[in-house]
Every structure is written in C-alpha cells, then in structure tokens.
Amino acid sequence: MENVKKTPMYELHKKYGGKMIEFCGWALPVQYEGINAEHEAVRTNAGMFDVSHMGEVEVKGKGATDFIQNLVANDVKVLEDNQALYTHMCYPDGGTVDDLLVYKYTNDDYLLVINASNVEKDYSWMVENTKGFDVETKNISDDIAEIALQGPKAQEILQKLTDTNLDEVKFFYCKKDVNIAGANCMISRTGYTGEDGFEIYTSNDSAADVWEKIMEAGKDEGLKPAGLGCRDTLRFEVALPLYGQELDKDISPLEAGLGFFVKLDIEDDFIGKDALKKQKADGLTRKIVGFELKGKGIPRHGYDVLSNGEKIGFVTTGYQSPSTGRLVGLAMVDIAHAELGSEIEIQIRKKVVPAEVVKKRFYNKSYKK
C-alpha cells in the first residue's frame, strides 16, 4: 500500500480486519468478514462504508445555478434549497463525462459529488466550462471525508448520535451543520445500495472518531463495516450504474437506460443536449439490458454477448446476486436484441451459456420517501 492515498479510517479498516486493495489511487477495504455477509447486513440491518475517495467540488457565485444547468443533463432549476439531484455531465457528442450528485444549498452555493476515478478529469472539465459564468469552483476533495451508513436500521443507529430529527431529512435532501458525536457534518439521505441511509460528510480530523462512534452505536443493531465488494453487488442488484462499466465517454445516459434523468424538453441548453436529442429522435442502436443465465457460470465485465454465435454486445456487470441467488448481469446489446424475453448467449471463457433478457432491477429498492 505504498504510494497510495489513505483515508482517515485507514487504521480502523485494519483494526476491523479489512482486506485492503488499491482502488482509484486509494487504499480501501474490498471486504472485512466477507462480501455476502456485508451485503446481507446492509439489506437487513445496516452497513457502513468509507467513501472518502469520492470527489467534492464547491460551486459558488451569482451564476452558480446557470453554470450547473449548462453543465448537466438534469434540471437543476427545479431544486429546492438543501435538495439533491442525480445527473450526468456529457460531452458535446452525448458521451458521459461522469455521473454525479448535485447538492443545492442556495441558488449561489452548491456541492457536486463526483466519482473518485474521474476527479481530475471532471474538475478540469468544470473549469474549462466556467467561461461566461459568474462562478467560482473549488476542488475540496482532499479536505472532505465521507462515510455512508446504509440499511433499514441506519436512521435508528445515527439518531443515537445527533439531536437533529432525522425524520425531517427527506429522501434526496441534505442538511448542513449537523452535530454527530461532537463533529460538525453535512448529511444527506442518499446512497448507492437501494436501501435507506445517509451519507455523512465531515472533516478529515473528525472522520475516524465519527466512524468509531457509529460502530459503537450500531453494535446491537447488527451494523457491520462494509467494503467495496458489497458496495458493487448492492448497487448492481438495483440497477444503479457504475462509471467505467454502464457509463463512459462512449456510452450516453440514454443508452445506459437513464433517460429519466436527461431533461431534453427544458428551455435551457446543456452540453451534449443537441447530440442526445438527435440520438433519441433517430432511435437508439443499442442499450443496457438485464439478463439471467440459464446455465452455470459468472458473467464478468467485458465478456461477449452473442446471438446465434454472432457478437451483439458485451457484459458491463455480472454476479450471482447475493439477495436472490440468481446468475444475472447487465449488458450493452444491439437494440434488436433488447426486448424482454430475448434469447441471448454469454461467452464465459471457452463456454457459451444461454441467457434471457430480463428486467434490470434484480431487487426492489427500499428507500424512505
């Protein structure tokens, strides 16, 4: 673990038995007790993730709203103060720069949360597109630690450590200056698991103590520390995309099946709008679908998808779903093979395994509205 960044929880991960790997330049735990056990904890009780590797960018100024509206494909202008939005930054050709969360504090004060693998690229893209807007951007990624507490008991656990009434923080809203175990935090009712929960942003100096206090508060509620491994299986089961797999510079949000978050009918222009409007008008030539294997094997990222022996696409993510036991995956396929019930094949090493196109959501989300 030399020459990699360490989060404030690094020593705690070792204390709790975390198996450390390098991920996006950071030393992070892929698992502790085991991926399936941690996955089950999040689905039934609660799990806690160190997501301090994520990037954070402040956007402030009179032109902040107009700048972000031009930058992303969703409609920022519908946001209330302290509301969050999932969206995408796109290139002019419609490909995806990144998917991100936009937190609106006020009309001239926002926080953008971006993927760890894209921090430098994203921030350069933002700065490049500030021209003509009365706005200031600041990359504060190295100053912020982030903890995700996810699962049906997340609120019960966190409520023990704060006087803030967490019932008042609605789904996809946030609250600044929340005292959690003596630390000043920003919390949001968001996550990446399909379960209720909170993302907690605090200073590097406070993060390790907050982590330990939450672990103590959750010891009787089945709280487990959780690693990157189950973070991926959890998001995959509820069809949440991962940049670099379901989204990238060559995959548009429309092709990824995320058109709900692309507002082509708003008056304002945004980067990539013309290309996405054309893509929609012309009709998609390919899209991300769900599939289920009819034989044995694990469909890994990058495996070929076939129809009658001809390549028609590739697997973006595949697992044996911990929650259902099904052998399932997501794949980019030619549009002619994207209908539910379509018969396809997955090339798994030297074996061709039959599969069927099914709904992408393999597990029903359980959010608190």
Rank of each mutant, 00 (worst) to 15 (best):
N129M: 12
N364P: 00
L158A: 05
D81E: 14
L71V: 13
N139G: 04
E292P: 00
Y16H: 09
Y110T: 06
G341H: 07
V178A: 01
E292F: 02
M89Y: 04
G95E: 08
L112S: 05
E11G: 06
K224T: 08
I114K: 00
I35V: 15
L240R: 10
K219Q: 14
I312E: 07
L161S: 10
T190F: 02
I344P: 10
S52C: 03
E267K: 15
V238A: 12
Y201D: 02
G94C: 08
L223M: 11
S141Q: 06
V135D: 02
E212Q: 15
V57F: 13
V352A: 13
D98I: 03
E255P: 05
D50G: 10
D167W: 10
A84M: 14
M48Y: 06
M20S: 00
R300T: 01
D142Q: 11
T202S: 01
I335G: 03
E339C: 02
H13L: 00
E339A: 15
V352F: 08
L254H: 04
V135N: 01
L258V: 02
K170L: 14
A208P: 02
L71M: 14
V76Y: 04
I114C: 13
P241G: 09
I271E: 11
N204Y: 00
D122T: 15
A338G: 05
E38W: 01
D143L: 07
A217S: 11
G295D: 14
G55I: 06
A256K: 03
V78D: 13
K131D: 13
G283H: 10
L28N: 00
V328H: 08
Q320E: 15
Q150R: 04
I251T: 12
A27F: 03
Y319E: 09
V238S: 13
D209L: 00
T202A: 03
H39T: 03
V333Q: 07
K277W: 00
I147N: 03
G18Q: 04
P29V: 04
Y367L: 12
F261E: 12
D99K: 06
Y192H: 15
T106N: 07
L111T: 11
V357P: 11
H88W: 10
E212C: 09
Y363Q: 12
E156N: 11
K6W: 06
Y32I: 00
F260L: 15
S188F: 00
Y319Q: 10
R231V: 06
I348N: 09
V262I: 02
I346N: 08
K19F: 11
D196C: 09
R235K: 12
H53I: 00
P225C: 03
D75S: 02
I214T: 01
G197Y: 07
E255F: 05
Y32G: 07
V357M: 02
L223Y: 09
